[in-house]
Structures are given as structure tokens and as C-alpha cells.
């Protein structure tokens, strides 16, 4: 009984860590521009597919991964530069629709550049399951959780301790105030896309040995990352992490105890519940301010 529960919990934490990274990507871009970037899932896919290709070319994993993350970040910057910046002062909804278009384009390009097959990455350190209190865990799950934790801590340090990070946050608190102290908001926007894409790619890569990847793997990962960000409160980093873990665990539990047929529905039920009862999310701030 306990061991089954533990088994589901491990699998939920592994998934949750990936959703947290995707959710953080949504929040970073939302903070810089109030845009919800629906191409976020594609960054996870590009990271994983590029790694598969590079490994296929004979590159060792430790070289292929940073290169694939850089490729995804470059795609992110290009998306911002050529699709978001030219929209100028268009309404946020317009830009959101642009990102939906971009996600379809990126999937199409991925089909052409790569193919329509499923691909697996080799596990980073073997596939011999580790036994913990009667439950078993793949070594790759530890990689997923460890790498996600490291990325989240690095991000926390960047936004909480460095002036460059605080300047990016300042743009979300007061765009005008930030412009008036000389924060270059266009560069902040490009940086936010680079960060989100790189972060997404890391998530997509570490999870690829467990879940496989394909040109359309980003769709579900992106939507669940979005659920995580909304559940935590859009724009709140800690909220996105918490939201990711909740969505991941809820998904694993419902797949285990109810039916795996409904596992993808869990995230969307959570979105609906949040929108009905907690529109600001778990940690989101209320829409009020001192005047």
C-alpha cells in the first residue's frame, strides 16, 4: 500500500519537476511582457530533439546537451526578435495569438528538419532501478529532480540576488518606472525568451530518456506547464514550481488510482478549478495596489 503510494509519488515528482521548469518559463516571459508564450512547450521539444540529433551525429551527451540548450535559447531569442518585437504596441492578446502561430510553425519545421518518429535519449547513468522503501525509481528520475532543483535555485539566485535579475523583475512591477531608470526593456524581453527557452530545453532533455520525444512532444508539456503557472499564480516563480509539483503529483495519482486514460485530463481539471475558485492562483498577488 505505502510502497504503491510512494511509487506514484516518485513518478509525480519527476513529472512535476518538468512541469515546474515549463511553468517557470511561462512566468519569466509573462513578467517581462505580460504575454503568455504558447510556444513554451516547443522549447522543451527543440531541446530534446536537438540533443537526439547531436548524439546521433556522434557527439557525447555532455557536449550535445549544452549545445542543444543553446540552440533552443537561440530559437527563443529569434522568436522574440522576429515575431514579438515587430508587433510593437499591439495588444497582449494579439501577441499571444502570434505565439500560438509560432508554436504551430515550430512543430512544422521540426517535422521537416527531423521526422515524425518517436526518439529516446540514452539514460544519463544507466537504467538499473533504485529501490526506496519498497518502491522503485529510475536513476533518470533522480537526474530530472536534481537538475530541475539546480536550475530553480540558479534562477532564484539570479532574480533574488543580482541587479540584472532585479531589473527584469522591476519591468514586471512597473514597466514605466523601469524604463525611466534606464532598464532597456527590449533587451529584457529578449533575455526573458532566451532564459525561458533554455530552461524549457533543459527540462525537455532530462525527461526525454523516460518519456521519449517527438516533434509534437511539446504540446502536452507546454499545456501542463501552463497549468502549473496558472495554478501557482502567473508571474510568481515559487508558485510555478509549487504548481508544477501539484499538477505532476495529481496526474500520477489519478493515473495510478483511477485510470491512466484520464491522466492528461487532470491538469485541465486543475486549470478549471483554479479559474473558478482561485483566479489569482495559489501565490499570485491580488489585482489591487495603493494609489
Amino acid at each position: 500500500m505505502t510502497s504503491t503510494f510512494l511509487q506514484f509519488l516518485f513518478s509525480g515528482l519527476t513529472l512535476g519537476a518538468i512541469y515546474a521548469l515549463a511553468g517557470l518559463g511561462f512566468s519569466i516571459i509573462y513578467n517581462a511582457s505580460h504575454v503568455i508564450n504558447f510556444a513554451q512547450g516547443e522549447f522543451l521539444m527543440i531541446g530534446a530533439m536537438a540533443t537526439v540529433s547531436l548524439v546521433g551525429l556522434g557527439l557525447p551527451l555532455e557536449l550535445a546537451i549544452p549545445l542543444a540548450v543553446a540552440i533552443a535559447a537561440a530559437v527563443g531569442v529569434a522568436l522574440a526578435r522576429f515575431a514579438v518585437v515587430p508587433a510593437g504596441d499591439a495588444s497582449v492578446v494579439t501577441v499571444i495569438i502570434i505565439t500560438i502561430g509560432a508554436s504551430i510553425l515550430l512543430r512544422g519545421v521540426a517535422q521537416v528538419v527531423w521526422d515524425k518518429e518517436f526518439h529516446a535519449l540514452p539514460a544519463f547513468s544507466g537504467t538499473v532501478p533504485i529501490s526506496v522503501l519498497g518502491a522503485t525509481m529510475l536513476p533518470q528520475s533522480l537526474w530530472v529532480m536534481g537538475v530541475s532543483l539546480a536550475a530553480i535555485l540558479a534562477l532564484g539566485w539570479f532574480f533574488g540576488r543580482t541587479m540584472a535579475g532585479k531589473a527584469m523583475l522591476a519591468v514586471s512591477y512597473s514597466r514605466l518606472g523601469a524604463q525611466l531608470v534606464g532598464v532597456p526593456i527590449r533587451r529584457v524581453l529578449l533575455t526573458s525568451f532566451a532564459l525561458s527557452a533554455g530552461l524549457g530545453a533543459i527540462g525537455g532533455i532530462v525527461v526525454a530518456p523516460i518519456t521519449f520525444t517527438s516533434y509534437e512532444a511539446g504540446v502536452m508539456l507546454g499545456l501542463k506547464g501552463f497549468s502549473a503557472a496558472v495554478l501557482g499564480g502567473l508571474g510568481n516563480g515559487l508558485g510555478a514550481v509549487l504548481g508544477g509539483l501539484v499538477v505532476g503529483i495529481a496526474e500520477a495519482m489519478s493515473a495510478g488510482y483511477l485510470s491512466s486514460a484520464y491522466k492528461d485530463a487532470t491538469a485541465f481539471v486543475i486549470i478549471l478549478v483554479v479559474l473558478f475558485f482561485l483566479p489569482n492562483g495559489l501565490l499570485g498577488h491580488k489585482g489591487s495596489e495603493r494609489v
Partner: peptide, 20 residues
């Protein structure tokens, strides 16, 4: 309307004033 960075500390607001 001031446009201070509400969630950041008073000191960080001042440091951001010297951002350039």
C-alpha cells in the same frame, strides 16, 4: 504616480535608480 517597484525593497529601488 511614483511607479516604485512595489515588491522590491526600498534599498533595491534605490540601487535600480543607479542601474546605468
Amino acid at each position: 504616480g511614483r511607479q516604485v517597484f512595489g515588491p522590491l525593497s526600498v534599498e533595491d529601488n534605490l540601487r535600480l535608480g543607479a542601474y546605468r
